[in-house]
């Protein structure tokens, strides 16, 4: 021991897990990867969507998925890995059927997000960045998800679960465990994380028409304006 051993402060960072070589990527996946590459003026622009597709098929960014992307785009596996390890949505280990995110950035944290995360951890028996033994849930401490007027915010498979409380969170997790239909606050009936990843990759699931136009908070100002009779100026008047 020299006393100068390297100590990483980022134990969770690093490369893609190359020890688990399992994959479900088949010819259909390869064709879809090629289709994504064909949607852009330059194929490499499709790399982010392609990695979302890999996750939808393999439940994580798999070594085979990296090879597949590299092969389709004609770039090296190192180039693909470099991208895959930069973005937080790409997972190095399998996500659960449902991926839970609890926002603990400043505003959500002080409004209850920290306590909410404690509650979800206790309920699921896992910590952030872990997956339950049965593969049903994975948990992530997320950062601001652009729904601050609905704080504290929780996400399930990247759908909004607004104005969350510990009681509501427990009910939600129970319902998901029981396989019940659960609707997002502003979104569709929850599917699974893998299905969500497929939509993000660019293959629609036909659910755009589900859910409301807007949440209550989104409509607050509009509602007050309507009640007061306030509007933008009349264009006929401003022309004069």
């Amino acid at each position: 021991m020299s006393g100068h051993e390297f100590q990483s402060f980022f134990p969770e960072s690093g490369e893609v897990d190359m020890t688990d070589t399992s994959t479900n990527i088949d010819e259909t996946t390869m064709a879809e990867l090629r289709e994504l590459a064909g949607r852009y003026p330059q194929p490499r622009s499709a790399l982010l969507p392609m990695l979302h597709l890999v996750q939808s098929v393999d439940g994580r960014v798999s070594p085979a998925g990296i090879e597949a992307c590299a092969q389709v785009l004609g770039i090296t596996t190192a180039q693909v890995s470099g991208v895959a390890t930069f973005y937080t949505m790409y997972r190095r280990r399998p996500a659960g059927r449902h991926h839970i995110g609890v926002c603990t950035t400043a505003l959500c944290a002080v409004m209850g997000g920290d306590a909410l995360l404690d509650c979800v951890e206790a309920k699921l028996g896992i910590h952030p960045d872990e997956t339950t033994a049965d593969g049903a849930f994975s948990l992530e401490r997320i950062e601001c998800n652009a729904a601050c007027d609905f704080a504290p915010v929780m996400m399930v498979n990247w759908e909004f679960m607004d104005n969350m409380t510990p009681d509501k969170a427990e009910q939600l997790l129970d319902d998901l465990s029981a396989g019940k239909d659960v609707k997002a606050s502003r979104g569709a009936t929850l599917t699974s994380w893998r299905e969500a990843e497929r939509v993000l990759a660019g293959f629609p699931d036909g659910r755009a028409d589900e859910g409301p136009s807007a949440g209550e908070a989104s409509l607050l100002g509009k509602g007050i304006a309507d009640a007061e009779g306030w509007t933008a100026p009349n264009p006929e008047v401003t022309k004069l």
Binding site: S213, L219, G221, K222, A225, E228, W230, A232
Partner: peptide
């Protein structure tokens, strides 16, 4: 004098299926 609130971008957010063409 302009009104205190002036919904333009948000004027249709409460409409039925406002996201539809």
């Amino acid at each position: 004098m302009t009104d205190l609130l002036t919904p333009v971008l948000s004027a249709n957010w409460g409409d039925e299926k406002s996201w539809d063409i």
